[in-house]
Nucleic acid binder design. Sequence first.
RNA 1: UGCCGAAUGGUGUAAUUGGUAGCACGCCAGAUUCUGAUUCUGGAAGUCGGGGUUCAAGUCCCUGUUCGGCAACCA
Length: 568
Amino acid sequence: MNDTPEENTPPLDFIRQRVADDVAAGKNDGRVVTRFPPEPNGYLHIGHAKAICLNFGLASEYEGGVCHMRFDDTNPTREDAEYVDSILDDVRWLGWDWGENLFYASDYFDQLYEYALVLIRKGKAFVCDLDHKEMAAHRGTVQEPGRDSPHKSRSVEENLDLFERMRAGEFEEGSRTLRANIDMASDNMVMRDPVIYRIMKVDHHRTGDKWCIYPMYDFTHGLSDSIEKVTHSLCSLEFQVRRPLYDWFIDEVGVECHPQQIEFARLNLTYTVMSKRKLLELVEGGQVEGWDDPRLPTICGLRRRGYTPASIRTFCERIGMARRDNTQEVALLEHGLRDELNRTAERRMGVLRPLKVIIDNYPEGESEELDAINNPEDESAGKRKVPFSRELWIEQTDFMEDPPRKFFRLGIGREVRLRYAYYITCVDVVKDDAGEVVEVHCTYDPETRGGDSPDGRKVKGTIHWVSAQHAVEAQVRVYDHLFMAEDPLQAGEGGDWKENLNPDSLEVLDGCKLEPALGGSVAGDNCQFERHGYFCVDPVDSAPGNLVFNRTASLRDTWARLQKRAGS
RNA sequence: UGCCGAAUGGUGUAAUUGGUAGCACGCCAGAUUCUGAUUCUGGAAGUCGGGGUUCAAGUCCCUGUUCGGCAACCA
């Protein structure tokens, strides 16, 4: 009794279902063409990753399916080639390939101009002399219809002439626009004679000074989809009201290919913000150190933090696809990451907050090497040697003079196991003037070499350690959620959302002691510091002899959770 | 007091289109463990409200409520 394939396949989301239906019905000759259409005016974040994985993923599920990479670069005042490169990098890093299909809406400016002429000749577009303010006044409100522009009834010839002269640069910026001739009384504000072209005497990052009029999004986007023979044009919910306009342009221009726009809910994540504007505010306000700050949900930030492309793709698959507003818990993202890293990351020992341990009965000046397993989840990762000697570093939190119940770690008179090494028993402590324990004296049991005792006695705790004379020093940056509130935008009465910033979102630890195997770490390396979490070498600030690690994610810490619960 | 859209455990997302409310994360408990990790077992927790149709409603109808989007020469 085997499961049928159907039972193993997750159900299709509403978009995939619809595409499957279209293909089954022979629509578009069974072709599937999608596109990812960013504007090159900022950095990609994980919300974009959702759209990227949807568009590229969906296309990849069909024989011959393709996903185009297209830049919606119709507003030269806010766009820049710099962003094009970073966006391309990010999409590639996520693991997607657009092949030959890299396009720019600006590639279509000539064609789009011709399309505009078609509309004018049909009487479906007119040149309007209203300025910004006047146009707004004519537009009406959501509850009241707008009024026709006084120029709406210009002749086709006059419109053709004026539009050509707009293109020739005869008119001032803002003095004239080309508008669609639709309906100023429409319930849908978007249909109230929207602007198609505006005058902008600005160089474009690709077309230079060729144009001084630029097409608007609504006109450009759908027709670009049509030019590229896109079959399914997937976008986020806020474009829903614009679908009638998307369809209107395509129908009125009379192009043969009419892609289907389908909207889905964009991604929100707990403990962070996603809007471009707010991200920019954090970067410019200095609350973070740049677009690639590891606390940001930007793709470059996640990459620097140590997130893997696969974990982000898995996340995008698991969150599903629907039309309702949603806020995903970061915990789901983190879970996928840990799940992957648990399988792939090699284990190392690193002491973040060092406390000196001296093994009184271990000979001075001697050392030995012990075997340590690189990855218990993957035997092929093999073993390594870890040096042991009389003076060690352990974690400050692994010793307590006056331990609470169920504390399995080191305390006076207690015995614990040093991971892969020996059982040690604490016999004494040395304190500084302030009464802080600065040195812990222990004895070790030579019979327990490797971590097992021949007499079968058990120890409850196993702690990590690093030999003091062999330790490699490093800076470790411990990251936590950028905001303290699940929904940072939910600020108190009159409050600023930035008041929800987590003051402890970054803790920089210097003088951390790492096992020597980590000495040659370079950018791109990652590992698990046992009992701490997953870390990666910071690609920007780390250098040989000046190692910097970022904490990608902590391990689940049941003990800390219990402690916290008992404390509060 | 407009138009459009959406409401299923804490968070997401399914339910053969009218027929056993499933899955994942999170949470709780236990077992295992040389990582208080991992793994394993079990548990708590849900159809926005009110009517109606029907043998049968998360699903269909009516009605209410709540939430989101829309008045850039932005995308």
